[in-house]
Design a protein around this nucleic acid. Structure first.
Lengths: 194, 194
DNA sequence: GTCTATAGCAGGATAGAC
DNA sequence: GTCTATCCTGCTATAGAC
């Protein structure tokens, strides 16, 4: 057939369904048969698009991390101060989590699970954290950020983000509350600032 | 037989082995048969002590959380200032993680995984976080801590702890480095302080 | 309490028609 | 590319002797 949309939509349906089921039931508790049936395709079709269940998981993980990183990068501006950039990225990151709760939960669950191989997790980390590292170094040069060891600062940034987005996903209405929004960024910034 | 040590050690061997395997391979990737054989017991023995694989997991999770909380509480002192208590608890918590890397990884992986039911996770959280909440309220009364929403502060505390202990478990030698130790507490405290 | 042996079934992956 | 049908491994849990 020569309707490429058909293929794309089937493949995409499998990925969407798989992500939802992996988040809600866990990877091993989700059978390939259930992914296929809920996606409205046959099991054979799933294995036509992905050589194995694990390969499906890997593709899902890397695609989602890249999507997240791309979203953040759109909110960087050469014209703004470091603190303004940090602020904009912080809010963009949590916004993304609020708007993509499944994908955010996916990170929460699988960013440090042995379900995903170390190599894949590190690959994902670097594709995201590269530009954050640069920002940390810049902030130190400008005398805005404390001179803590960089790797530790990165881990704390990541941890604060996971914690804050976890909180706001559990309580989406509070993301509309100015006090909560500001408090989240304030704790993030104060931890790092001089 | 009337040697209770025999039973305890078999049961304990199953639990120790299970924790290690769950951390390294994941819950579903670990068969009850492999737990039993590596623990040096028969599968029947495992199911004599635990009605199901899931029950084994639940017991492991709650026992470990309680052990952690008990360790922290030992480092609270009525005579010390809030900041000193916070500091002592912070170091005690990471120390515990360094000395129990398996158990700490276990938290990292399963504290937000659907492998463990929400009820069990909340039960564990409350048994630990109860006294932390009290400390936060006290700090606000004393004008030492910022007046952010309590639930959000708790989540950030938890997130910073997970991030820091993850970092030091990956780089145990840096836990001996004064700069790294102090930086970790400094970021924790500054995030919360007024 | 502990063992051996096995029931019973679920699920990943494949074959082959269309 | 998609489907149906099915193979076959590997797993949880049980039965029953010691």
């Amino acid at each position: 057939m020569d309707n490429p949309m058909e293929n794309i939509s089937k493949k995409q349906a499998i990925m969407n369904t798989a992500l939802t089921l992996f988040v809600n039931q866990g990877f091993y508790a989700t059978s390939t048969a259930s992914i296929a049936s809920q996606a409205g395709v046959a099991t054979g079709t799933l294995f036509h698009h992905f050589p194995s269940k694990e390969a499906l998981m890997t593709k899902l993980f890397l695609d989602t991390k890249h999507e997240f990183a791309d979203h953040l990068k759109q909110h960087l501006s050469k014209d703004d101060s470091l603190q303004t950039n940090a602020r904009n990225i912080w809010f963009a990151a949590i916004d993304w989590g609020i708007n993509n709760p499944n994908k955010e939960s996916f990170f929460q669950q699988y960013s440090m699970s042995p379900t995903i191989s170390v190599e894949i997790r590190e690959e994902a980390m670097n594709s995201i954290l590269g530009f954050i590292s640069k920002m940390l170094r810049l902030g130190k040069q400008q005398g805005l950020l404390a001179d803590y060891p960089e790797a530790l600062m990165l881990e704390i940034c990541h941890g604060q983000y996971l914690a804050a987005s976890r909180f706001f996903i559990d309580h989406p209405e509070l993301w509309q509350d100015e006090q909560h929004r500001e408090a989240s960024f304030s704790m993030f910034w104060k931890a790092l600032a001089i």
